[in-house]
Design a protein around this nucleic acid. Sequence first.
DNA 1: TAACTAGGTTACTTTTGGTAACTCAAAATT
DNA 2: AATTTTGAGTTACCAAAAGTAACCTAGTTA
Lengths: 130, 130
Amino acid sequence: MIKEKIDKVLCTQTEPEPCCPIKDIMARFGDKWSIYTILMLGKQEKLRFNELKGLIAGVSQRMLTVTLRSLEEDGLVSRTVYPEIPPRVEYSLTPLGQSLLLQLLHLADWAKLNVDQILEARARYSRKSV
Amino acid sequence: MIKEKIDKVLCTQTEPEPCCPIKDIMARFGDKWSIYTILMLGKQEKLRFNELKGLIAGVSQRMLTVTLRSLEEDGLVSRTVYPEIPPRVEYSLTPLGQSLLLQLLHLADWAKLNVDQILEARARYSRKSV
DNA sequence: TAACTAGGTTACTTTTGGTAACTCAAAATT
DNA sequence: AATTTTGAGTTACCAAAAGTAACCTAGTTA
């Protein structure tokens, strides 16, 4: 049953603290660029900073840096600096990051499958509130 | 192959605009409370506002309202108001929301399975940068 | 000598999220 | 009769996160 599955996977406020680290991990997805960055890193074994920036439409240099550092911190992305001038830095998914990528692809599949329904719902909603 | 799958599911900056709505849908997950709210709504067919607030540790009244409205807008959550005093409002997942829940559970499973690895990676990272 | 390069960082502004107080109208309490 | 309580919010105000633009580095090229 789904309800039990949810209970197994997460924990609720009923427990005091230090509650569940899952919530903490799930917060990884609660930012603007992490998911998309991981999906793009799935496209090639290695990507340089500016290649990645080109693939992720709309991301700023600063936010890409911030996002990549925090993914690196969580062990999802590895960062290799070549001490050259101008610098060369290559990013790639770790095995852990690759395993996450598979899950995120399911999510992206779902989005593609249901995009029309969602856009319709949005249109209905905006008509209703006029 | 995974690389082709990513290309099929998303589109990149190379195309000018109106690019892909998937990116727009995926942005649904790029906020702080949506994923967690949907997971909690999976625990019961119907949940009242304050029940939900009790299940989602740390969410403020305002952010829960904002989050629920935007999920309603996307057709993932339905909202039923009973015209009583004091008011009673019940929230539940739509079929679309339920289908999304299944994907999010995979994500939560992944988080649970890998939480130790991630915490270790974080510890390594913080030692490195000392 | 100046401009270019890749991968950033810094300072500043805007947007998003958090906190606390307030609202509404009827029923329950004093 | 006046006050408090109730659930589901809203409003005003403040803090944190994200966006923008300018700057940095040091070797190579024009």
